[in-house]
């Protein structure tokens, strides 16, 4: 049935699509290694833009904020989301459905609507003097659903008898959860953390509208890209962000791959 020409046409089409997809990003990367202000004019290879980048105190400050807020929000989201997943898994049908529905709201909702909702909340209802705290809270809320999404499905794969056995052997519920359930959820938790971090790293809508003084890298980028005459240094910044994201993705893949391998080994051991 499979025609060879069909496969060849498919391959050619895919190659063209990949080129179209990556051409703009490739050009951006190439032009980060020259200090010419106009794109299209090659001024010779130079690392000037990268030097400028690390000497820019505003960008470095934004980078620091991005990492602090991202790590803090993802960590909080992982704690809240993992607890919530174990809880939701053991709720009765109706509350379970409600919680799963509520969990979808921020994921389905438009960023701008979530952001203006937060803006009203933090301006008129919960006034927090520290904008760091506000941003960490807001990011925790948008990140947690992704943790739940990656942890919850794993719970239904677990053998419930092991937890019960732990209780029968005298472990307190808390201890049984920590020593029996959590280790088995670890791959999901790690994936959830990574997802949460990328969501936080991706956000400029909420950061821009909710905070007035704390700058993050995406917020900085958005404000600088809006204006005419984009600074060349943003090319270097963009490339570094892309490299960081790729590195993070590679790390997640390695971690989850190892975890999967370990799980298989463990299962073999138990089987014997």
């Amino acid at each position: 049935m499979k025609s060879k020409s069909g496969v060849i046409v498919s391959v050619i089409f895919l190659v063209i699509m990949i080129i179209i997809t990556y051409l703009p990003v490739a050009i951006l990367t190439v032009y980060s290694f020259t200090d010419s202000t106009t794109i299209g004019v090659w001024n010779g290879f130079s690392l000037e833009l990268y030097k400028d980048l690390f000497n820019d105190s505003q960008i470095m400050e934004a980078l620091k904020n991005t990492i602090i807020i991202g790590v803090a929000a993802s960590a909080l989201a992982v704690i809240l989301g993992t607890m919530a997943s174990i809880g939701i898994h053991h709720l009765r049908k109706v509350p379970k459905m409600i919680m799963e529905g509520v969990n979808q709201i921020t994921m389905v909702n438009a960023d701008i609507v979530t952001a203006v909702g937060f803006m009203l909340l933090f301006l008129f209802v919960i006034v927090i003097p520290n904008e760091y705290v506000t941003l960490i809270l807001a990011h925790t809320v948008i990140c947690t659903p992704y943790v739940v999404m990656s942890v919850l499905p794993r719970l239904s794969q677990l053998n419930p008898n092991v937890y019960e056995a732990g209780l029968d052997l005298g472990a307190s519920p808390l201890r049984a959860i920590i020593t029996i359930i959590l280790p088995q959820l670890l791959p999901g938790i790690v994936a959830g953390f990574a997802l949460a971090f990328t969501i936080s790293l991706d956000d400029f809508t909420i950061s821009t509208l909710v905070s007035s003084s704390v700058d993050t890298i995406p917020r900085y980028l958005y404000n600088k890209l809006k204006v005419k005459g984009i600074m060349p240094v943003l090319r270097a910044l963009s490339v570094l962000i892309m490299v960081a994201v790729m590195a993070a993705l590679a790390a997640i893949n390695i971690v989850s791959h190892r975890a999967e391998k370990k799980k298989i080994q463990m299962e073999k051991l138990i089987g014997r």
Partner: peptide, 13 residues
């Protein structure tokens, strides 16, 4: 990758 970067790359190209 952050959507801002994709948009920036489109603008550049």
């Amino acid at each position: 990758i952050n959507s801002l970067l994709r948009i920036y790359a489109v603008k550049l190209f």
